[in-house]
């Protein structure tokens, strides 16, 4: 059985997926993800790429039961609207917490997880999900 997902794709995206590379606009001083060559807010090309600290806050979340093929293992899968310390927002999975214990405003940290596993023989895609901070006991 041949693999179905491109090794080149996982390779060229690794900085963004592993380390949350994002764009910062030097003109309007705003940040956005995924990184692009042109500012989505002011259109400027005066962009630099940065890496996120991984610290963020849950702004909203949903618990998904109709999960797409590739994500059914995670069902029910929590998708959160996360606002990062650097100001940009993204949608990503929230893991290691029961949905009833998630609240808006909850602090989360970026954690490396398996995103997609390509069949029985293909590559494992790693990327960032979010988990609650480990609190002092």
């Amino acid at each position: 059985m041949m693999f179905e997902r491109s090794p080149a794709k996982i390779w060229r995206n690794r900085d963004v997926l592993y380390r949350l590379k994002y764009s910062y606009c030097r003109d309007c001083k705003r940040s956005f993800y995924p990184p692009r060559g042109r500012c989505i807010y002011c259109g400027s090309s005066n962009i630099e790429h940065r890496y996120s600290s991984g610290r963020g806050v849950v702004k909203e979340f949903t618990v998904v039961y109709q999960t797409p093929v590739g994500f059914t293992d995670m069902s029910p899968m929590v998708i959160g609207l996360i606002e990062m310390e650097e100001g940009f927002r993204l949608l990503a999975q929230i893991v290691d917490v029961k949905p009833e214990e998630i609240s808006n405003g909850m602090k989360v940290e970026a954690v490396l997880r398996r995103m997609i596993v390509d069949g029985e023989t293909g590559l494992i895609y790693y990327g960032i999900k979010f988990a609650p901070l480990i609190e002092k006991s």
Binding site: Q66, Q93, M115
Partner: peptide, 30 residues
């Protein structure tokens, strides 16, 4: 259905958004 749900998620950027498990369904729920 799960396959159709997967194809529907193809509406999102496959490199950086779909890979998070995001589809128009989860967006609409939010």
């Amino acid at each position: 259905n799960a396959k159709i749900a997967e194809l529907y998620s193809y509406l999102k950027d496959s490199d950086y958004i779909q890979i998070h498990g995001v589809s128009p369904l989860s967006e609409a729920a939010l």
